[in-house]
Amino acid sequence: MSREKGYTKKNFLKGLFIENPLFVSILGTCPALATTKSVEAAIGMGILFTVVLICSNILVSLLRKIISEEIRTPAYIVIIATFVTIVKMATNAFLPELYSTLGVFISLIVVNCIVLGRAEAYASKNNVFDSLIDALGMGLGYTLALIAMAFFRELLGTGAFSFGKIFTFIPAFKLQIIPKGYEISMFQNPAGAFIVFAIILGVIAFIKNRKDELKLNKAKQERIRKEQEAKLAAAKETGGNQ
């Protein structure tokens, strides 16, 4: 198989920006709204999600020649559910606070469209290494997106960032940024989650529109310049003839 140079890097980075699962593909929205009350919970959710995605991508890619077309979906679902259960039990054993914070949303990674989507669209067609890189990129992209959501929700909703509540192995500390009494507690509620998500999507759309416009303008200017040059050249030619 011929590979273009720098494919691995591109493969990794696409999950972060161009094909970001949450902000561009709008997949996996349920945990993005439900588990982003605090940055810590978002980090935890992102890590669990990435672990499941990496494991399922590797296994699906390993078994891609064995699993035939018609049993694809059930086989993938079983594989994903297995890893989710393992991750769930491990969390319950070693990070009980994270387990009780995320609750049923750990189980719901099974039906997260991103995991099944990557298995179907990428891992079932590519080799193990590429699938691993793809999973890493997508998982990291999703985690960063969750952190971005949680950043605004926690900052505006509680006015402070508190750590050490869920990851009990780091010392607990609280970083008060907005003075007490000035926080907008709505951002901790469901409505705030929708608003933060809407604003982030709106900003992304705005930047995209702006870029497209600039590109369009550049192309237009280029065309006008070329036309003028052609006119000038034509004028010169006719002028030379006279």
Partner: peptide, 25 residues
Amino acid sequence: ITLGAIAMASAVLIGVTNLATRNQI
């Protein structure tokens, strides 16, 4: 057979994890 094997493997994996984490829980 493939489907059955996958299901069996998953059951075994989960069982093993359960044994490993039960005491800690």
